[in-house]
Write a protein that binds this DNA or RNA. Sequence first.
DNA 1: AATGAATGAGGTTTCATTCAT
DNA 2: TATGAATGAAACCTCATTCAT
Lengths: 187, 187, 187, 187
Amino acid sequence: MKEKITEHSIQLFDKKGFTVTSIQDIVESIGVTKGTFYYYFSSKEELLMEIHLRYIDDLLTKQMKILDDHHKSFKEKLFSIIHLSILDIKKQGASAKVFFREMRHLSPESLDKINPKRDQYRFNIENLLNEGIASGELRESLNVPIVTFGILGITNWSYQWFNPEGSIDDKQLAEIFTDMVFKGIEV
Amino acid sequence: MKEKITEHSIQLFDKKGFTVTSIQDIVESIGVTKGTFYYYFSSKEELLMEIHLRYIDDLLTKQMKILDDHHKSFKEKLFSIIHLSILDIKKQGASAKVFFREMRHLSPESLDKINPKRDQYRFNIENLLNEGIASGELRESLNVPIVTFGILGITNWSYQWFNPEGSIDDKQLAEIFTDMVFKGIEV
Amino acid sequence: MKEKITEHSIQLFDKKGFTVTSIQDIVESIGVTKGTFYYYFSSKEELLMEIHLRYIDDLLTKQMKILDDHHKSFKEKLFSIIHLSILDIKKQGASAKVFFREMRHLSPESLDKINPKRDQYRFNIENLLNEGIASGELRESLNVPIVTFGILGITNWSYQWFNPEGSIDDKQLAEIFTDMVFKGIEV
Amino acid sequence: MKEKITEHSIQLFDKKGFTVTSIQDIVESIGVTKGTFYYYFSSKEELLMEIHLRYIDDLLTKQMKILDDHHKSFKEKLFSIIHLSILDIKKQGASAKVFFREMRHLSPESLDKINPKRDQYRFNIENLLNEGIASGELRESLNVPIVTFGILGITNWSYQWFNPEGSIDDKQLAEIFTDMVFKGIEV
DNA sequence: AATGAATGAGGTTTCATTCAT
DNA sequence: TATGAATGAAACCTCATTCAT
């Protein structure tokens, strides 16, 4: 049941937004009553926190798997990480959107738990880039933190427009973006 | 008074979010009564629309000024457009955030008016890139629409993290991003 | 202007009801502002009172003209009075409906002025019936006050259903009702 | 509780009118909170609809019982139907008044459900009159639909003035009206 | 004679939450 | 494990009215 509530909530939060979705909406979509909701969650915010935790934990796990893969070259790792974000939009679309859009409705205490994980995700990319510089594959002059934000921008922004059913699929998109990040657009 | 209401609302919507900010919050921050609000706006949504229109119209105007400037080279134009977004975060920070975050709370009718302008902004960048290709400055193989989304990702995402009071200012950031976009990160 | 406000108000009160019609609705339908309304009327209720007074005074005047007409027989007078009510629905439809439906929204003070006129209208019919009994044209056993309420019911109720544009016109309707009142429905 | 809310509402709607009576007035008269009201009714209009449905369904049932009674003669049936309306004012006074006065505040969808029942009540009387003509008890020349409106006028109008505590009771009134309808007022 | 800005009280409705069962 | 009744605070919005100009 807790699972079911969470799944349905994600869909509703994605479609209508956290504030606009009422507990009533959630339980009606499942066919139970409000009491049931409060048996499993102590507040609406706790549910939102649950959704956030699931998402970021899952994403971090996947990221770690890529980074720890000794069969992958540096380039392949960066491609995989870019691909990871985009693939997630396809597979966890609703969760991803809820994660990015509704974070502000978490309580300060919840944010204190989520933010370090979010930062960890970013730091992992920074570390990867630093390795690339050390190995001579990337320019030494790069401002790594900023460039990392740039890469995150490219990937995270795609949940705003990317339609996995469209003419370009997730792998192609990841390739175009990886190419753009590595070589830029100049001739 | 209408001006005053709009300005205060932007600040509040930025800080707390559109849904969470009540009319009461708005009028209290000014020291008038709810009636006054409804004398100037027929609904909360109309106010949101006003904010959106102001923002996008202003941004489009500035973009056009850059694109129509015959003294600027292609490279300078792209830099200026990247700089424009980032500068706007500094100058119109709250408006920018409200624009990106609260669009979903516009009515379908309002969205029908905003979306074409939003698209126009993007198409203008696509056109610029196409010119760059035509003049031989950019690689012919680029997928222009996707690359444009990439550029927009880089710039628009910065309203999530960029702190204009920080150690890096808007011009420096624009330079780093322009460099990244043109030359990539590879050595 | 006062005239214009009154006329437009009658139409709106008829269509939407007194409580539901706002001053805003009224002045908008004319193209002036609320201030104008309060220049001519001190309150919404005063306007309603004006409408009531006009209606009942006009009706009483017409009734008196019929009753004082020495060329009319008793029967003709009763027919004319029944016809008067029905004709009024056609000519003053909106006013008539407002009069019957919105009386409750008059202040007690206003009601104290309207009620005697309303009663007067009824007493005049009672008196006519009593004359008919005295002259031997009507049954002596009649309960005149109750029968008068019956006649008023027949005529006043018709503003609920009578459509002057329909297949039966006001004169025909008055004839059918007069016949019904005089002779009943028995064979 | 739903029952209780309905009963109290009828009293208040009768006394002050539907629009003027607030949800606050209703719940205060019972000693619960507004939330309770909206637990049982989804809107004020739904409550009004409930009141209308109850009234007309009850009245139609009673009317059918009279019409289907094979022990009653034609004359007795017409008397009983007239008596039914008047008795209802005594017993269901408030409901009756709310029914006639507040119908306009029903939504179009609600009206579509009420109107056929209202019409049914009238058609049943028309049918009875047609039977009276067929059996030779009523004049053949009668315009049945109009006469029916006349009878309805006589009875329905009485909720405007009839005081069941007065010197004439419901049975006497029904007798006077039946007499008037059958024999008219002429000598 | 008319406007336009502002008020403040009150309207209907929504909603997260509680709690006895 | 789940329900259903109830709360109370707050939401958006409407409106009759006032008043300086």
